[in-house]
Design a protein around this nucleic acid. Structure first.
Lengths: 110, 110
DNA sequence: TTGACATGAAACCAAATGATTTCATAAATA
DNA sequence: TATTTATGAAATCATTTGGTTTCATGTCAA
């Protein structure tokens, strides 16, 4: 029950508004931790923690380059979330289809 | 900063694995709180709280019917999350396009 | 090699979260 | 009407979370 999907970490990563803002930043350009932190009213360690959580959810990838760490968007995490939603939508649409069929059958029966 | 979007509540609602499992259940059929709770190894009040959080995120709608409360999937919450992801993807794709253009220009310049 | 710079890591803290138990209320049923 | 049934609400608790400060480490540059 409540299967431990890989998408679990992605959902967790996107749950925080600061992290979503970070994702929005990284969608436009790659950034070091310091670069990202400069955009928020919190300390660098706090931002670094957020980045690690995003990495755990495969929402970003981190590449060490010298003493810097380049943070880059990773489409995998967002894709996992999107696919989960699409799966739910599939079931939901199937239900709507059944409802429509039932109504039509009802109409035919009078 | 970190704009308080309506989708905030939807992301929050989907962050918990139990709540995602509830969404999966409700995608197949509407259920009372008791029905939902029967699927989990936790008390009904706990499940009721989860349902209220899902409702706050517009992931479900709750309709009172007599002494029962029918919980039904609401596509709005999932749509909000999907749209946010699509927006990020748009920026990301734009960047990939720019990168491709830059590489082609580089090739042409020698 | 010395110093500045980017980051990691650990200890710590307040607030939020997920869950419980207990009691109250309102509606269906015998 | 009396009783069961479905839910709401409040108090409580342990854990997680998001943040801080402080200190250590590794890398670039003068």
């Amino acid at each position: 029950m409540t299967d431990p999907n890989p998408s679990d970490h992605a959902f967790r990563a996107l749950a925080d508004p600061t992290r979503r803002a970070i994702v929005a930043l990284l969608a436009e350009r790659d950034m070091t931790i310091g670069d990202v932190a400069a955009n928020f009213a919190m300390t660098r360690p706090a931002v670094a923690k957020h980045l690690r959580i995003l990495e755990a959810g495969a929402v970003i990838r981190v590449e060490a380059r010298g003493r810097e760490r380049i943070n880059r968007l990773d489409p995998a995490g967002l894709a996992a979330v999107r696919h989960w939603i699409e799966e739910i939508d599939r079931f939901w649409s199937a239900r709507l289809g059944q409802l429509k069929d039932a109504i039509e059958a009802e109409d035919n029966d009078g």
